[in-house]
Structures are given as structure tokens and as C-alpha cells.
């Protein structure tokens, strides 16, 4: 697998990371090095092996009981907000 410049630009846009046009080539080369490294995994025969997303499982025994144990801390929640007003976070207007 190898990323071309257009793919690098698309991935950067999806991740909201600004990559100037003249750096796409170099970033692409770096990403390709990582991809090629990971690609070695495909040499392993995984036919008939269930995909594993984790080494252990959650069971309901370790789940949380349905109790309200947090909240009522608007100041904490808004403390690091770049902008806030009347108890709300505020952001540049986004309208559909």
C-alpha cells in the first residue's frame, strides 16, 4: 500500500491537520514508511483466525451500576473552554 499526494491531502483534511501543498510529498513519504513497516504483518497467515480487537473481554460483572454520580459542575466543565457564555460553550457559528 502506498499513499499518493491526493490521498495524503484527503487524510489530512479528515483529521483537520493543515498540510501545505509543498509538504504533501514529504509527509506522504513518512506515512508510507510507517505503512510499509506495518504491512509486514500481512505476511502472517491469518486464515480462519477471528479478528481480535482486544486481549480481554468486558462482562457485565465489571460494568457500572446505573447511578448518577457526576454532573453539577458547570464551572469545571467550562474552565478550559476557549470561549463560553451563559453556561454554554460557544463556537464560531455552524449552520446547516
Amino acid at each position: 500500500m502506498s499513499l499518493d499526494k491526493a490521498s495524503v491531502a484527503r487524510v489530512a483534511n479528515l483529521a483537520r491537520i493543515k498540510v501545505p501543498a509543498d509538504e504533501l510529498e514529504a509527509v506522504g513519504a513518512e506515512l508510507n514508511t510507517i505503512l510499509h513497516w506495518i504491512e509486514q504483518l500481512s505476511e502472517v497467515d491469518t486464515d480462519g483466525v477471528e479478528p481480535m480487537s482486544s486481549a480481554a473481554a468486558t462482562t457485565l460483572r465489571v460494568a457500572r451500576p446505573d447511578i448518577v454520580a457526576d454532573g453539577d459542575r458547570v464551572e469545571d466543565i467550562l474552565k478550559n473552554a476557549p470561549a463560553a457564555s451563559l453556561g454554554f460553550f460557544t463556537v464560531p457559528k455552524v449552520v446547516e
Partner: peptide
């Protein structure tokens, strides 16, 4: 979106 002319409020 209707609380402010240039800002959206998030709850």
C-alpha cells in the same frame, strides 16, 4: 444557532 449573531452555543 439562534442565540447569537456570530456564535453557536453548545450544551
Amino acid at each position: 444557532h439562534d442565540q447569537h449573531p456570530t456564535l453557536s452555543f453548545i450544551d
